[in-house]
């Protein structure tokens, strides 16, 4: 088993190990924040750790391992990276907007009121 990693030079193995640990550690810290924070708007910040630098570190480790081993092209990692860069902000933004919309429609005083305007129209989405 796992003989494909045996050809990896020591420096690449060390860097890959560090990157993997850093990525997983950051993701874990993010989910700890998801558990610890008190309100939804604080919690929405927590998973960003995993979905930016966390997955970035692991993708880098994967690229490093497979480009040093030259067993296959590193192109799939590039695709996943691009996908993550495009999608992470959109999902979080949508969730934050949905939460604000729900809280405002319930009259919660945790959120700021919509900017006062002659016709009470919800703000336009930014997309």
């Amino acid at each position: 088993m796992n003989n494909h990693l045996a050809d990896l030079p020591a420096w690449a193995a060390a860097i890959a190990a560090l990157l993997l640990l850093a990525g997983a550690g950051l993701t874990l810290i993010g989910t700890v924040g998801l558990l610890r924070f008190g309100s939804f708007y604080q919690r929405v910040h927590a998973p960003t750790l995993g979905s930016t630098l966390g997955i970035g570190c692991i993708l880098l480790a994967s690229m490093l391992v497979f480009s040093v081993l030259e067993s296959r092209a590193i192109l799939h990692e590039l695709l996943i990276t691009a996908l993550m860069v495009v999608t992470t902000p959109i999902t979080l933004m949508l969730l934050a907007r949905a939460a604000l919309y729900r809280d405002r429609s319930e009259g919660s005083d945790e959120v700021p009121p919509p900017p006062s305007s002659p016709d009470a129209r919800p703000p336009e989405p930014a997309e």
């Binding site: 993701t27 692991i58 979080l92």
Partner: peptide, 14 residues
């Protein structure tokens, strides 16, 4: 759920 998806992606990468 979103966090779960991202973490599952990372687990598959490892």
């Amino acid at each position: 759920l979103d966090t779960l998806y991202v973490t599952a992606t990372m687990l598959l990468l490892t």
